[in-house]
């Protein structure tokens, strides 16, 4: 820090020297142009040179394909488009594994890609089928199937789900289900063939024991010409009241259901729910209840 202090004294000496000697008559080069004085010309030249050099260098360093298609390097696109593939696509698998593919195409897993379960197979299917390291895996453990099929309330209603602890615990799924054709164990294939989502919703609901026909009288022609021969739907509160109105039987069997196995919620039809029809508040295929 001493120079801060020292500076003052030293320059005093310097300046006094200069004062004695006066301005030495050294020849000065004056670069002034017209009214622009010398120093402005000097600094101006430096700036113009610096800016000129910067602009020239800039032109030189801009990548060659920059700006061809927009404000970016067009050459980046083929690099990105040339990245290595890992998933081959199910069509590729079918070229060799036609049987499995055909079987899968006829079953509930028809929309599933082979590589969803077997993993990325490009190296096996395209690069080198004999490379054993690239051979796709066959998942046989229960956990893998449960990734999709364990019950979660967030899953869409109708998607086949099991409660893990109730559905043959510890058994591998493949013991009963062929993953390429996992037949659903639905109770009325005739209806669930087309209305699978509703059937599966109902299957895990309080109404699981009711047959579809109990509520929907269905003309046989519906199966041949469905839109022209629609099944019936209940039209009034009394229909649901057959089971759920106060005073209906609480023991024995009702519409094929053994009443000793479950308690049916009962309401007073005259007062419950105002003028609404039952299904305006309750979803009959998955009614909330006690």
């Amino acid at each position: 820090m001493s120079f801060l202090r020292g500076r003052l004294g030293r320059s005093k000496v310097d300046s006094s020297k200069q004062a004695v000697g006066g301005n030495s008559p050294v020849k000065k080069r004056n670069l002034s142009i017209g009214k622009v004085p010398d120093q402005a010309v000097r600094i101006g030249t430096v700036f113009i040179l610096a800016i000129g050099a910067a602009v020239a260098l800039r032109q030189h360093f801009i990548p060659e394909s920059f700006g061809e298609l927009g404000h970016y390097r067009a050459n980046a696109i083929p690099v990105i488009a040339g990245a290595k593939l890992h998933y081959a696509g199910w069509q590729k698998c079918g070229e060799c594994h036609e049987d499995q593919l055909n079987k899968k195409m006829g079953g509930f897993h028809k929309a599933l890609s082979c590589e969803t379960c077997h993993g990325p197979a490009y190296d096996h299917a395209v690069v080198d089928p004999t490379d054993t390291e690239a051979t796709p895996k066959i998942p046989r453990n229960r956990e893998f199937c449960l990734t999709c099929h364990s019950y979660l309330p967030s899953r869409p209603t109708g998607f086949p789900q099991i409660i893990e602890l109730q559905h043959n615990p510890m058994e591998p799924c493949v013991k009963c289900h062929n993953p390429h054709d996992p037949a659903a164990q639905a109770e009325a294939p005739a209806c669930s063939g087309c209305h699978g989502e509703i059937a599966r919703t109902k299957a895990i609901s309080h109404h699981s024991l009711l047959r579809c026909e109990t509520c929907h009288a269905t003309p046989p022609e519906h199966k041949e010409n469905p839109r022209q021969n629609l099944p019936k739907k209940p039209t009034n509160r009394e229909f649901c009241g057959q089971c759920h109105a106060e005073g209906t039987p609480t023991s024995g069997t009702l519409l094929g259901v053994d009443l000793s196995t479950r308690e049916i919620p009962k309401v007073d039809l005259a007062t419950h729910g105002n003028t609404y029809l039952c299904w305006q508040c309750h979803y009959p295929h998955d009614p909330e209840g006690k």
Binding site: I62, F66, G67, L69, G70, H71, P78, A81
Partner: peptide
């Protein structure tokens, strides 16, 4: 200053 990005040429860069 000027930039080359304004040239919107639609040249083929891919295969």
């Amino acid at each position: 200053g000027p930039m080359r990005s304004l040239v919107g040429a639609s040249e083929e860069a891919e295969a």
